Amino acid sequence: MVVEGEEVYGEGVPCWVDAQLADVEAGKRFYGELFGWSFEDAYGSSVWALLGGAHVASLAPKTDGRMPTVWTVSFATPDAEALGRRITATGGRVVMAPFPVGDLGVAALATDPEGAVFGLWQAGSHRGFGRRHEPGTFVWAQLYTRDTATANAFYGGLFHEALFGEGARPDFGRADVTDVFPAEMPPHFLAHFRVADLDGALGAVQRLGGRVQAPPFETSYGRVAVVTDNQGASFALLQR
């Protein structure tokens, strides 16, 4: 049975993260140890990741070995079809048209004008995160881009209310790729998970077969390190 998120996520708010992995069982061992997640069957061959009984992420097997091993951030929308049209009209691209995921909701995949990939989620019975902003859960998404002006215009136009509306708390920001990564790194979203002890979490990542991509650095939203799991999926750890 799906435990719904307690919140209703407004359009443009990050509402879910999922990992596409070659080996879901290996992913369960890695993230279960790192974040204290437990797991249960979800849709198809995917699994829910739970913390304290609440859904916090999902792990899915790659359907094609040529697909990247990645974490994807999805943004809430009441109408994935309409948002897809706006994305296309403003220079982005819909790479996977909206499709139903049982009664859970409607998903789609898109890119911004620079090619950074993100998901869309139109909620059905599954609204999104059951818990967030706590240790072991999603806390922030950072867009690394080469053209901050274009990114500001694109996302500001798409998600104006989430970014600038009264009481806005978008849970995502943007930075230049070269602030953290080599210049050849393509633009991308990086999911951040909160931890209580960043140094201890980095030790666990390495012990579990992952690696540190970028050692700890200070940001306006906390102390961050970028890591990969034991299959190569990148994500960030954030201590606030």
Score class of each variant (00 low, 15 high):
133 H>G: 06
235 F>G: 04
66 R>N: 15
161 E>Y: 05
213 Q>D: 14
126 H>L: 10
215 P>D: 09
81 E>Y: 06
153 A>N: 00
234 S>W: 07
182 P>W: 02
38 S>K: 11
71 W>F: 15
111 T>P: 03
215 P>G: 15
105 G>M: 04
192 H>G: 08
54 A>M: 02
30 F>Q: 08
2 V>F: 08
236 A>G: 08
109 L>G: 09
157 G>C: 10
151 A>N: 07
207 R>I: 02
114 E>I: 07
24 V>T: 14
28 K>P: 05
7 E>M: 09
122 Q>P: 04
137 T>L: 07
130 G>Q: 04
145 T>C: 04
163 L>G: 06
217 F>G: 08
225 A>V: 09
57 A>I: 02
222 G>R: 03
154 F>H: 03
64 D>F: 04
136 G>W: 01
6 E>V: 06
138 F>Q: 05
29 R>E: 15
44 G>Q: 11
178 T>D: 07
85 R>L: 12
40 E>M: 03
120 L>F: 06
153 A>L: 10
128 G>F: 03
218 E>V: 11
3 V>A: 10
12 G>A: 10
216 P>A: 10
12 G>W: 09
35 F>I: 00
173 G>I: 00
75 F>Q: 11
56 V>K: 07
164 F>Q: 13
229 D>Y: 04
59 L>G: 00
91 G>F: 00
109 L>A: 10
35 F>A: 05
85 R>A: 14
152 N>V: 10
143 L>A: 07
110 A>T: 09
202 L>E: 07
74 S>Q: 04
206 Q>G: 08
9 Y>L: 11
178 T>G: 05
203 G>N: 01
25 E>P: 01
48 W>S: 13
70 V>D: 14
14 P>I: 06
112 D>E: 06
116 A>V: 05
234 S>R: 05
79 D>S: 13
200 G>Y: 00
51 L>D: 00
182 P>D: 14
129 F>R: 01
60 A>P: 01
117 V>T: 15
104 L>C: 01
178 T>W: 02
